[in-house]
Design a protein around this nucleic acid. Structure first.
Lengths: 246, 246
DNA sequence: GTCAATACTTTGTCCTAACATTCTGTCTTA
DNA sequence: TAAGACAGAATGTTAGGACAAAGTATTGAC
């Protein structure tokens, strides 16, 4: 097949043209219609086929290069790298992730109160020690089984949720609903032995291995908006990342 | 200060203009010269100041938006998000990372032989079970202390290193030197208790928590080029990731 | 027949230009 | 005084063209 691929664009749609093309290409790769190693037509002829300019076509391709689905080589062309499309680790909460994969998430609220910031938290949020912060501690379950212990600290003026709100959705959803846009987050992923309390909550024994994640999130205004210290049952959870050479 | 920032470009340099600008901006942010919340001039006037076109200036800014250092808001402008510049998790080997941070890496080769691929490895590499693969097993030390146990399997025709070569550098360096370009890698990060053998090598006890990473790397041709199963002493190592909302 | 020089293909970079969209602040009007 | 209309400012999208650089294939000479 020279080009079994059929791409179309709708110029009346408000969706950007480059995005329409990128989406269709991604789906074609994900569905196996374009198999690894397949060489795309060159940018100019692709653009012509769709009635687009080269920059627009180029941008569509770039989107997929950034995602690691395509590879470009000057003087050679553009090829499909591999078909297994894995979603990049995104700025979504664990709650949304679970629901998206069909598991039934649940939350048990352990702590939900405003208190003076401990030293480590104040440092991460860029606050003074003792400034008031909202302290949350939750046990997250998936399909009725304990999955993770989630400890979070937020500036006191971001949200002030009820226990019920925390049980019905993810933290990030509440933050977004409050009109705050989370822009960047820095995560550190590690491991350690469970504390006695964690073991009790997760249904294991002290010093059992747990996967840990510390995260500091920043709003688009630049100020720190959340510090989280989570630990997960490693049998039930792992992080996936896709790295792309640029 | 309206704009204490002084940017310059060298048109005779082979380094792309947008990259020159992005680098200078990144350094200005990293050094604190541009503090969080600082609002950049608009794209057009920045481009004028440098004698560049708007697309080129725009691309420079985009680089830093992708890295999470800047935020753009339509109708408003471009702002610095936060100053702490953390390097994105990159396609570099642990060996290079250690050397870059000033620690003294060393490697002890435990296994270096060609053998039939076990089922799990064959599956990850897209091979048939029993196909010949190069099996490597190494103990990585930093400043004389054991840090990680590295198990890797590669297609037999990629590299065939001597023990000495493995001791003097990272695996990825050897792959690159062989003319193979690693383009994409998928990593899964988790945790578990150490096996007896791992505990002995890392100087701990059985069932001590270890941080684990499984990675499958693909060459630009699309074929799988390496499968790795590593475990790290969590006191000595963790992964850092920066997530950017797009 | 082998090796080197050349031509061609394809992506990479950069430019000018125009219009759309979104947000902010101001001015007008009820 | 307050709410809505409007203008301005900034980024977002798209177009079309030109040249540079790198890799591939062909051609030519020895």
């Amino acid at each position: 097949m020279a080009e079994s691929l059929r791409l179309t664009v709708d110029r009346r749609s408000p969706v950007p043209l480059y995005y329409q093309v990128a989406e269709q290409l991604e789906q074609a790769i994900g569905s196996g219609q374009l198999s690894p190693g397949f060489k795309l037509d060159n940018e100019i002829s692709l653009a012509d086929q769709l009635g687009l300019s080269r920059p627009t076509m180029r941008r569509a391709i770039q989107e997929l290069v950034d995602k690691g689905l395509l590879v470009r080589k000057r003087g050679v062309g553009t090829q499909v790298v591999h078909g297994r499309v894995r979603r990049e680790l995104e700025l979504t909460s664990l709650f949304d992730d679970l629901r998206a994969t069909g598991q039934k998430p649940a939350t048990k609220v352990l702590v939900n109160q405003v208190e003076p910031a401990p030293a480590e938290v104040a440092d991460e949020l860029g606050f003074a020690e003792g400034d008031e912060v909202l302290h949350l501690e939750r046990l997250r379950l998936a399909d009725e089984k304990p999955l993770a212990v989630l400890r979070n600290w937020l500036p006191a003026n971001v949200i002030r949720p009820t226990d019920e709100e925390l049980e019905n959705g993810g933290l990030y959803q509440l933050i977004r609903d409050a009109g705050t846009h989370v822009q960047v987050a820095r995560q550190r992923i590690g491991a350690r032995g469970a504390t006695t309390q964690e073991a009790r909550l997760l249904g294991g024994r002290k010093n059992d291995a747990v996967l840990t994640m510390q995260r500091t999130a920043y709003a688009d205004s630049g100020r720190a908006i959340e510090y989280g210290d989570h630990c997960y049952r490693p049998e039930a959870y792992s992080f996936e990342v896709t790295l792309v050479e640029r």
